[in-house]
Design a binder for these strands. Structure first.
Lengths: 162, 162
DNA sequence: AAAAAATATGCATAATTTTGCAGCGTAAAT
DNA sequence: ATTTACGCTGCAAAATTATGCATATTTTTT
């Protein structure tokens, strides 16, 4: 199961480069050490919400939905980030501590990102439980959280039990 | 020359409906009285910047770039709209009068829409000259301006020489 | 007004993407 | 331990889109 990793790398590549076809993406992935077929890419790209759009130079390129490109990340981040106190890995799950009363909003925000890596969240008053999808490593969830809330890991101290 | 009209109708259709393929768009255009081939649609869609992206329901649909979808229209409209005083058709061109000092901003805003119908604009202090592309009717430019600045034509009185 | 140039379009075909299906591996249930 | 269920993947075919080329249409030049 390397799907989660593949999705993250695909996301990184098409966010940073102009990829004009699934075949060329296939090539780039090979350079990153990921192998799969073009058919799989077709399915993965749909899952990421990525589409093939004009690149403004007469050609085409793959592009992530606005929601994932930072527009999303910059809208509510300012209110969410300060409420997060710390993140603890526990039993393959992650527990996020927030300021009192902020767990709900923060969880909604995380849910809104619709990340593949996260199976679901449960929020109390100041605590959020993040349940990673099977086969997803904690490291991948951390990467994913950093994507949802840029600056998160720089700002807070991560207590790691593992 | 019905390209300008076709582009506008394509834009209207894919903005309002979920169109999943060029063939079905071809069909819808026929219903609107426009005939062309799939090859032409492929080229026109690229010109509009429209791409085929996941629709969130497991399927695909054509989608306009953010800049054209109203996100754009709603961001700066509030500041631009009030500055427009009137619009006059003259010699196949359009002249927009604004409050003193506002022509520049308004023109930049209009240019930013990158509309096919508009070849270019020239702005003074309180006057903007809009030069329609050849083959585009004044009516089409008005439609286009209404798309860029929703509410424009409701708000101001249009003085029409034609 | 005729010729030349530029733009737009259709046709046929190439290129690319999507999908049905079968096989695999993992996890849950019996 | 065997069976059942479920998600992921590759393969090959089907569907869809992009493009080269020739032609038609419009615009500009002469």
């Amino acid at each position: 199961m390397q799907k989660a990793e593949r999705l993250q790398i695909i996301e990184k590549i098409i966010a940073g480069e102009d990829i004009s076809s699934q075949d060329s993406l296939l090539q780039r992935l090979k350079e990153e050490g990921i192998e799969c077929t073009q058919a799989t890419l077709s399915r993965n790209l749909r899952q990421l919400g990525a589409g093939r759009v004009p690149d403004g130079k007469g050609g085409l390129k793959y592009s992530l939905p606005e929601a994932m490109k930072g527009t999303y990340a910059t809208i509510g981040t300012a209110q969410i980030l300060p409420a997060v106190i710390d993140i603890v890995d526990a039993k393959g799950l992650l527990v996020i501590k927030t300021l009192p009363g902020n767990a709900g909003n923060t969880a909604i925000y995380i849910d809104g990102a619709n990340r593949y890596e996260i199976a679901g969240t449960i929020a109390g008053d100041d605590t959020i439980l993040i349940i990673p999808r099977d086969g997803v490593t904690n490291q991948q969830v951390h990467t994913c959280l950093e994507i949802i809330l840029p600056g998160l890991h720089d700002k807070i101290k991560i207590i790691n039990n593992s």
